[in-house]
């Protein structure tokens, strides 16, 4: 899923009441929009959204941020129903997480097992510790999300 197809915080903000009532625990509605995208809060956590006036906005937000999900440690959210098992993420992750780049163009291999694996036609995470987001310092790599043709992978952070 390319960045332009992803729901951006400002787009989410437009569905929120915009009253900055602070009932959700955040100072502004814009901060709540970020929390929704980061899957830290659910749409029901905004009391105003539950009123009659915002029923269509709540439907829209539940379509994107509702339902059952579990965000993994590195912020990866997998929608198994959308995955076709093509293995593109496994291939690009292997090329990316297996190496670290220092300076301009010096590539050093990391000797780590693969992060992702295709099991029963769906993508699974098998080894968290190999992800570049678990390195010290972390590198916020997003190739798996960018290269997924069906948008089954989403990095929420």
């Amino acid at each position: 899923m390319a960045k332009k197809d992803k729901l951006q915080p400002l787009q989410v903000f437009q569905y929120l009441p915009g009253t900055n009532c602070k009932k959700c625990g955040f100072l502004t509605c814009f901060a709540f929009a970020f929390a929704l995208i980061g899957r830290e809060k659910r749409p029901e956590d905004c009391p105003d959204l539950l009123t009659e006036q915002y029923i269509s906005a709540l439907d829209f937000l539940n379509g994107h941020f509702g339902g059952d999900f579990s965000v993994e440690k590195t912020g990866l959210l997998i929608d198994e129903e959308k995955c076709c098992g093509c293995g593109d993420c496994v291939a690009v992750c292997d090329k990316c997480q297996g190496t670290v780049m220092f300076g301009s163009g010096i590539v050093i291999p990391r000797n780590v097992p693969p992060v992702l694996k295709i099991v029963d036609g769906r993508v699974r995470v098998v080894e968290w510790e190999s992800c570049k987001r678990c390195m010290d310092p972390p590198e916020y790599c997003r190739v798996c999300e960018e290269r997924c043709p069906f948008g089954a992978l989403e990095l929420v952070r």
């Binding site: 291939a91 090329k95 163009g105 069906f150």
Partner: peptide, 24 residues
């Protein structure tokens, strides 16, 4: 190919290409 031959890119063509790099 993602609908007809799903593993075509990752196994044979683009991502399997020797000169394909994610970085750089």
């Amino acid at each position: 190919p993602h609908n007809a031959q799903p593993r075509h890119l990752s196994r044979f063509s683009l991502y399997a290409h020797r000169k394909y790099h994610e970085m750089g």
